[in-house]
Amino acid sequence: MALPSMGHTAPATENVKLKQSIYETIIKIGATETPILNKIGTSKVTNPLTHSWITDTFEEPKKNANLELSKFVGETKNTAQKTTNATQIFITEAMVSKALLKANQYGGNEMEYQIGKKTKEHKMDMEYALFGLGRDSDVKKSVFKDYVQAQEATSGEMAGLFHYIAKGKDSFADGKRGNVLAFDESKDWSGTATELTEDKLNQILQTIWNSGVTPKDVFLGADLKGAINKFATRILGNETKLAGQVVSLETDFGTVNFHMHRLLSPKYGLGDVLIAGDFEYMKHGLYIPTMIEDVPTDITAKAKRFYTQSTLEVRNADAFAIGVGLTSGNNVKAKAILKAAKGA
């Protein structure tokens, strides 16, 4: 008689010789993209505590008509301004026992596997810091916080992009906090969000254009992609979807590339946010570029440490604008239907 796969003979209680079936590659679950970090490039930092950059502005255009014989005036003003951010130390560690290093297991060599995984996690932590997230329990306070310079018993914390794009303003006035524009009903990022329309998008882009910079890229989350899909369909004349890939649209200010960003979501308190600008004016300043070093340990294990010391450099805050308190038309309609249903 043939022996079936489930067959066994006493004293056996099951066929223990069957090898467990499992997909050979371990599936890593979670976001791994760092689109802003990838786009902005790097610059060199020479101070371990703080990094500064100097910006200057042109005068506004004015009438310039003079007599043939005119006096030399030569009025010159010093309008240069220094902006500073603190460097922040990012550390990600991995430790694997010597026994596990030798083991033959799914996913291959355990240390190589952990290095690949931790590399992505290390970059994601830096992207998280670029937004100023995790510095306060209230996201809307966290993202605007100033930098914290390192002290003997205090970790350095960089200020995120919202802080610099707010241009030193501590609160919203008439729907503006520097170049952060609030479109919610309260005009201060505390009220009910309103629908993202082409007029509102143009208002955000116009803020950048007026400063002499051409907006090139827009980052937004899944909650706002419905509104952009409508724009794309109308402009391109067919059913166009923004879903991970870059969608380029012609606007009043030239071609603008739209990108999805996973941190711009309700999970992180930024689902109603759209960030626009020319990201050539933003850099990841490196004091100590990412290094992987062996860490001595007195236990029977091998330890590795990822180490980066860096900061965010927003070279020209006027090259950016942020819209907050926005939602897609679908969300507005859904809320209206729900409100009507409750009223009934």
Results as ranks from 00 to 15, higher is better:
Gly226Leu: 05
Leu263Asp: 01
Lys225Ile: 11
Glu293His: 06
Gly285Cys: 01
Leu220Tyr: 04
Phe231Tyr: 13
Leu236Gln: 11
Glu250Leu: 15
Asp252His: 10
Lys241Gly: 10
Asp217Cys: 02
Lys230Pro: 02
Asp223Cys: 08
Pro266Trp: 06
Thr290Pro: 06
His284Cys: 14
Leu286Arg: 01
Tyr281Ile: 14
Ala301Met: 14
Asn257Met: 13
Lys216Thr: 02
Asp217Ile: 08
Ala276Trp: 07
Ala276Tyr: 08
Leu286Val: 01
Trp209Pro: 14
Asn238His: 14
Ile292Met: 02
Thr255Gly: 06
Ala222Val: 12
Tyr281Asn: 12
Met260Cys: 04
Tyr287Lys: 11
Gly212Gln: 03
Lys283Glu: 06
Gly221Glu: 04
Leu263Ala: 08
Thr233Ala: 11
Ile288Trp: 06
His259Val: 12
Leu205Ile: 00
Ala301Pro: 00
Asn257Gln: 05
Asp223Leu: 11
Asn257Trp: 11
Ala227Arg: 08
Asp298Val: 13
Ile288Glu: 08
Thr233Met: 05
Pro296Leu: 06
Ile292Val: 02
Lys304Pro: 03
Leu249Tyr: 05
Met260His: 10
Lys302Arg: 09
His261Asn: 12
Val213His: 08
Asp298Cys: 09
His261Met: 12
Leu224Asp: 05
Thr297Pro: 03
Thr251Gly: 07
Val256Ser: 06
Lys304Arg: 11
Ile228Leu: 09
Lys302Ile: 13
Ile208Glu: 01
Thr207Arg: 00
Leu263Pro: 04
Thr297Met: 12
Thr251Val: 10
Val213Arg: 12
Gln203Ser: 15
Lys230Arg: 11
Gly244His: 04
Tyr281Gly: 10
Val295Gly: 00
Asp272Arg: 03
Gly226Cys: 08
Gly244Lys: 13
Leu286Pro: 01
Pro296Cys: 07
Ile208Trp: 02
Val246Trp: 00
Leu236Thr: 12
Gly269Lys: 08
Thr297Trp: 04
Pro266Ala: 11
Asp278Ile: 07
Lys302Met: 14
Ser211Val: 10
Ile275Asp: 01
Asn229Pro: 07
Ala227Asn: 09
Leu205Met: 00
Arg262Val: 07
